[in-house]
Every structure is written in C-alpha cells, then in structure tokens.
C-alpha cells in the first residue's frame, strides 16, 4: 500500500443554472483509505461524485483518478472505477446471475474469466444459492448487496459509494458497513458519501465535510474534532441548587468552562476520565450529590454545528 494519491481533486466547480452545486472543492484520497464526504441534503456530494465518475462535466477544475484526468481521459477513469449509485440500479426482471453477467460484459469481461468472476462475486455478496431468482423478488438488503456486487466485478482499484445505506434497516446497514471495511482490508480505495455522522466516524480514515457546495473542513476524525477544541462535554444534575458548586468546579484541574441553566450544569473538559473523579471529590466535600451524569464525547455533529451554526440533521 503506497501513499501516492488515488484521487486528487483540484478546485472542482459545477453549477446548475443559478444553483452553484459545487464551488471549488479540493481534496485528496490516498490509496487504500476510506474517504467520506459528509454533508446535509443538497451539500453537493452527489454532484461531486458524479463529476469524479465522468457522469457530469465540471464547469471548472479537474481531478486525477489513479492518474487519469476526468477531463482528458474519462475512459481511463471508468476503467479503474466501480460505482455504487445511491439508488439500486439493476434489472429487476433478470436474475442476480444474469445481472452480474451483463454488467461484467459492460465492464469488458468475457468468456471464462467473466463466468468465474460472477461466481466469485456471488460468493462475496453471499447470494450464490439464490442467484437464479429474479432481483425483483429480493428483499431490499439483498438488492443492495447485488448493487454493490456489480461494482466489484472488474476488480476496480477504487470504489465510489453514494449514500449506500440510505433508507434501509439497521441490520442491512451493518452488513454494508462491514463489507466496506472488508473492501478496504483487501486494499481498495473507497470514496463514500453519507449524511450519517456515525457512519463517517466509524468507517473513515479521512472525512471531508461539505456544505453549500464547499468543503468546509477535512481531515481525520481526531483532527476535525480538534476544531471544536476537542473537548468533551459533561452534563450533570445535582440534588441541590447548582449555584453552590459552580465556583468550586471551575477551579478543578482540567475543567475549562462551567455553566448552569435550569438545573443542568454543563462542564467542558479536556479528558473526562481524569476530570470526573475530581468533580465527584469536590462535590462530596460540599456535601452535595450528583444525581445524573451524561458524557458527550466530541463528534462531527458538534464540528458541523461549530462551523455552520446549524445542525447536520434537521
């Protein structure tokens, strides 16, 4: 696994009429890593990924995908790419095996190699014993698996997944998230879009946060979280007036901020493991009692809120 970039995006731009869907997005995805584009509806994720797969022409900027320019060499880009569209794109009146065989041909596979690869992929997505059934009769989760399987047929070096987990049950989502990790383990580079913060957090080596067509921040999860100071928030309640403890809590080592509202005390700390015991000690000495504790680790939601003043999901 080398560290030369698999995808290098430089100042991509695209408008639809007056809507500036993507306005100057740049980022880099290294080989073998999972890069997530995280952003709310309409942020420009699909537009970006469509340009990176040569479905849409950029108005400005360029990108190199495994060294192929999306402007100069779309066929080169397509040859290294597997694309899993957000919506299921399969022929429902054909069986899973027929679907895979057809798509394999479209990717340029033929004859024995195609046959062998179709069976391999059927094994990977765990549908070999149901391969003779029409896709239209499959459950949502099974369709998703075939949908992903199609993109794996030609053993692409890079796979794009546009919101592959939207609108499915938690179990299927689990399956898909696990399969993405498996792909990464096999050395594939993954570009993933989602508006689920938890998914981005769990999967990604790097995360790019998009909003209104711009990349407002990018980096590893830890780097991003540092943007909000990397602090953990602890919400507590007491068996008495909060005012009595505020001064003493502010003095505790590792506490950076304390505020109270409606009986709920909010404390910002660098490291909750170290600070919480000290808070309990101080409270004991004041003869008070902590009745509830809620630890809120810093997350991307907070980062988004910090950067845009809006919640990621509303």
């Amino acid at each position: 696994m080398t560290n030369s970039p698999a995808i290098e995006v430089l100042d991509l731009q695209r408008s639809f009429g007056d809507t500036k869907a993507v306005q100057g997005v740049s980022f880099e995805v290294r080989q073998g890593e999972i890069f997530s584009l995280l952003g709310p509806n309409g942020a420009g994720k699909t537009t970006t990924i469509s340009m990176l797969s040569c479905l849409l022409r950029p108005d400005g900027g360029d990108a190199q995908v495994m060294g192929h320019s999306i402007r100069e060499d779309p066929m080169g880009v397509k040859s290294v790419l597997g694309f899993v569209p957000q919506e299921i794109a399969l022929y429902e009146d054909l069986t899973a095996r027929e679907n895979l065989t057809f798509w394999g041909k479209m990717y340029g596979l033929r004859g024995g190699a195609l046959k062998a690869r179709v069976e391999e992929v059927l094994d990977v997505i765990g549908l070999r014993d149901r391969a003779k059934e029409r896709v239209g009769k499959y459950s949502g989760g099974m369709k998703r698996r075939v949908n992903i399987g199609v993109a794996l047929l030609h053993k692409p070096q890079i796979i794009y997944m546009d919101e592959p987990t939207v609108g499915i049950d938690p179990q299927s989502r689990r399956n898909i998230v696990d399969s993405v990790v498996t792909l990464k383990d096999q050395g594939m580079t993954v570009l993933y879009t989602t508006h689920y913060m938890e998914e981005a957090q769990e999967l990604s080596d790097q995360i790019g946060i998009m909003d209104h067509g711009k990349m407002i921040a990018s980096g590893t999860h830890d780097q991003l979280v540092k943007l909000v100071g990397g602090q953990t928030r602890i919400d507590l309640t007491l068996n008495m007036e909060a005012g009595a403890v505020l001064e003493d809590w502010r003095a505790v080592e590792g506490v950076t901020q304390v505020s109270a509202e409606d009986g709920l005390v909010t404390v910002l700390v660098d490291d909750s493991n170290a600070v919480l015991p000290r808070l309990f000690d101080v409270t004991n000495r004041l003869a008070a009692r902590i009745t509830s504790v809620d630890i809120l680790e810093p997350n991307l939601e907070a980062v988004f809120l910090h950067l845009t003043g809006r919640a990621l999901r509303d």
Binding site: L55, L81, F83, P85, A89, M106, Y107, G108
Partner: peptide
Amino acid sequence: SRTLQRLLTTAA
C-alpha cells in the same frame, strides 16, 4: 431503473 446512468459509468 437508473441503469442508464450506471451504464455510463462503465466502459460502454
């Protein structure tokens, strides 16, 4: 069925 779009991401 969105397969037209998908076809356009292949070498076809």
